[in-house]
Amino acid sequence: MEADRFQELCEEFLLSGLEGEELRAFREELDRRGAEGGRILDRTMEAMGLLALSAPPVDPPPALRERLMAEVGAGTERRGESAEGSGAGSTPTGPSLVEDAPAEPASAGAARRDPSGPGHERPDIGHSRLDRPSPADAPYPWVRSILLAAAIVAAVVLGAWNVNLQSDLSERTAALEEAQQELEAVDTLRQELATLREDLGTIVSPTGSVISLTGTETRPDARARVFVDPQTGRALILAFDLPILTAESLYQLWAIRDGEPFSVGTFTATEEGPARLELDSLDPVAGADLLAVTIEPAPGQPAPTGEMVLISGQ
């Protein structure tokens, strides 16, 4: 999986969750990338932590603090009592705060000891419905045998029927999942087509202009075009014949004004076509004397530090 795609899945996983095939692909790729994949996920998580700070703080009602402190205190108290009251090796009954299991019900005192082992309890269900006469007391032992045989046959038939139903259900579920995946694939294709149309609109815009970037001495074959459409306020950068970088690096586009570089955005090269960067605003490139592309450590740098591979106006 391309670094770009993995980053995209990290963002979607943390922002809205993933499902189905995408979730499986993400988990596999995360496992495959090991610590490096973890670092990318971690970095995205940190960015999300900061995003949360863009929400204005709101003081919660004082009653919330009181309730929480009461619950935390009660939990600790119950835990202490339980630890004091229980012998070595016994399991404390967990307070709701510390353990997810509910506290022992008051009726548990009426529970009956389970002879299968110490400490195990089961509710007292009484004798009336479970008491059976001993075989010696049965008036017609052969009737019981017939009924037992009939019950076994019924159980076998029902079991076989259940297996068939389960198999049928599994097949239908698999077919449904397949259909859902196909629908998602169609949806993705539709979205990609819409993106291509939008790109084409920018490229052929009658009011648009094009800035060409050529490869530097180290990358003489590389080239790029920046399509600027003032009508929609959109710019599209397509770069060709750039080498595919490792996950730790990416390409960064700079606008140079009065000799000072300003970051425009980052992008990566893939095997699937030209490298692509889209801008929703022309501000980052407006008034630039030069445009240049450098190779930088991911996720980009505030000022250029790496090798320059493309430059305009040459």
Partner: peptide
Amino acid sequence: PLGTVKGR
């Protein structure tokens, strides 16, 4: 478009 959303 989805690609634009992802880019944003």
